[in-house]
Design a protein around this nucleic acid. Structure first.
Lengths: 101, 101
DNA sequence: AAGGTCCATCGTAATTTTACGATAATAAAA
DNA sequence: TTTTATTATCGTAAAATTACGATGGACCTT
């Protein structure tokens, strides 16, 4: 990127929406979230069993979902329980609803 | 990518949702769509005037939105009028609604 | 204290994305 | 026919993403 447009400042909602959408924009992450909707919570290892991906890859996707705010992790040593972050989930839902009318 | 997981076959809806979300997952594309919602339609040049980006960059974003099915172009030489593709827009809306409950 | 389990993080490679300027294409206008 | 206006596409570079295996850290269990 040879960006003259260093970084464009978009409206806050625009940025927020794009960030959520970006996190949703990979089939594995979408599938993880669908899984979490059913199970409500799960451990990293559960997902590693479900998806034909390396443990580190799954962990990386979880990290991105977390940094987008869509999930949260809770330590149950030596495991980590991931759940949907309901607050941000609702925020994303509302933003998208408004976006689509 | 050193993919052992050559390409995972996810559920059709999962793939479709991820594809829509990916297109929405960049602030410029999100802003273009917001603009299109207000104006209903516009020419490429209108967007080039609005965004501090090179014409080729805007064109590239439009291409991605188009290939995701969210917009469509109609030729009014030498201009091209872009509008939201209502059918796929509704499809994305419905898929996302169901996804978020 | 030593070993085991689970998971994050590091290092790295391939690929994709994002951005630019330059060029090509198209069709109206001069 | 040549020029002009508008936009797509090409070539390219920088950065981000996606994937892997290997390593390390935290915390039980032995």
């Amino acid at each position: 990127m040879r960006l003259n447009a260093e970084h464009i400042a978009y409206a806050q909602d625009t940025e927020a929406l794009a960030k959520f959408a970006k996190a949703l924009g990979h089939p594995t992450r979408m599938a993880i979230l669908k899984y979490l909707k059913k199970q409500s919570c799960c451990f990293t290892g559960d997902l590693v069993d479900v998806f034909p991906l390396a443990q580190s890859t799954v962990s990386q996707h979880l990290k991105e979902l977390k940094s987008a705010g869509l999930i949260q992790g809770e330590v149950y040593p030596p495991k980590i329980k991931y759940c949907i972050n309901q607050e941000n989930w609702n925020k994303a839902k509302t933003l998208l609803q408004h976006f689509f009318e």
